[in-house]
């Protein structure tokens, strides 16, 4: 297989406060290859966004980041602040959750779209403008020659997200990071945006990391899936592994909580309880307090290791729970 565009090894992010040390990301590793899509799934506070922010050098002030991150084979940790900033701007594109707020309201969209090219490729004046028109055209914005001088408030939500995508693709990045990129959009627009990203990915061979809590989106676009909970990866595998034979009780519970088309239900299934608070993580398995299986004392006191149960399918549990029932792994 080709060299991964982004690989992270044993990534951890922690914050120190008066209430103690909060480990919001702990021992995360995954990689994403050219043309491939990795979906990072989890509830709010599971550390999925923080993983990617820390990996690209955008973690908030006060965050302590550990582990190794390689972008195109180069160790980001060994770079200076300036080199890291350049590498990010040159090779990574970001699409954010809310297109209403992620664009600067007082700058024409064209300038925002090519700003990264100005900074990193030295694109200026008419060149920058025609590149902006080209990018807007590529993401399907009608009459881009006129729209390039418009301000964000003159666009609808879906069109703004297209602008953000054009902006992310300005430098032909090898990696596109979409952080809940369709969450703020209505379902129809969401489908259009997903389709757009998929077709662009096919055309440009970009690797995509898609952060989401929406399993429907994951099923639609992902090759690989990493399920995160309490700052850790609980399960990691191909989309077939995750949807076909989920190995972790949490993944199973998540899948069971999806609304089923054609099935009338008065109430959707939920996972009782709430995700753990980062500085009060349980000593054993992070999911133990909410786990429907609740194996034994070991789950409460000892953190299960991430174990490979099939080639490319890793699960962090003592109790592998295939569809047929609960089965004790051989140890």
């Amino acid at each position: 297989m080709s060299e991964p565009v982004l690989s992270i090894e044993n990534l951890s992010v922690s914050f120190s406060s008066r209430r103690g040390v909060a480990r919001v990301v702990d021992g995360v590793d995954w990689e994403v290859h050219p043309g491939q899509t990795l979906a990072v799934v989890g509830e709010s506070g599971s550390g999925k966004s923080m993983t990617v922010l820390a990996a690209t050098g955008l973690s908030p002030r006060g965050a302590k980041v550990g582990g190794t991150v390689r972008l195109r084979g180069e160790d980001l940790g060994a770079m200076s602040e300036v080199e890291r900033r350049r590498a990010r701007g040159r090779h990574v594109g970001f699409v954010y959750q809310d297109p209403m707020t992620s664009l600067n309201p007082v700058m024409p969209v064209g300038r925002q779209v090519t700003e990264a090219s100005e900074e990193h490729l030295g694109l200026r004046g008419d060149d920058a403008r025609s590149r902006a028109v080209e990018l807007l055209d590529m993401v399907g914005i009608p009459s881009p020659e006129q729209r390039v001088d418009n301000y964000p408030h003159q666009f609808s939500g879906g069109m703004r997200q297209r602008v953000v995508i054009a902006m992310a693709l300005a430098n032909d990045p090898e990696l596109l990071i979409a952080d809940e990129a369709t969450t703020a959009l209505d379902v129809t627009t969401q489908a259009q945006i997903l389709e757009l990203v998929e077709s662009l990915q096919e055309r440009l061979g970009t690797a995509v990391v898609w952060i989401t809590h929406d399993l429907g989106v994951v099923a639609g676009i992902a090759d690989q899936v990493a399920v995160m909970y309490g700052g850790r990866i609980l399960e990691h595998g191909t989309v077939d592994h995750i949807f076909g034979s989920p190995g972790h009780p949490y993944t199973q519970a998540l899948l069971a909580a999806r609304p089923q088309p054609g099935v009338r239900a008065d109430r959707l299934a939920t996972i009782p309880g709430a995700p753990p608070v980062p500085h009060q993580l349980p000593p054993g398995c992070a999911f133990y307090p909410r786990c429907p299986v609740r194996g034994d004392e070991r789950c409460r006191t000892e953190e299960p290791p991430l174990t490979e149960i099939a080639p490319g399918h890793r699960v962090r549990t003592f109790y592998r729970a295939p569809h047929s029932g609960i089965e004790r792994p051989a140890s």
């Binding site: 990010r88 970001f94 954010y96 992620s102 600067n104």
Partner: peptide, 14 residues
């Protein structure tokens, strides 16, 4: 603290 500032940082601007 606005999102568009994070956007700008993501672009790797100085």
């Amino acid at each position: 603290s606005q999102d568009y500032v994070r956007t700008a940082e993501g672009k790797g601007l100085m």
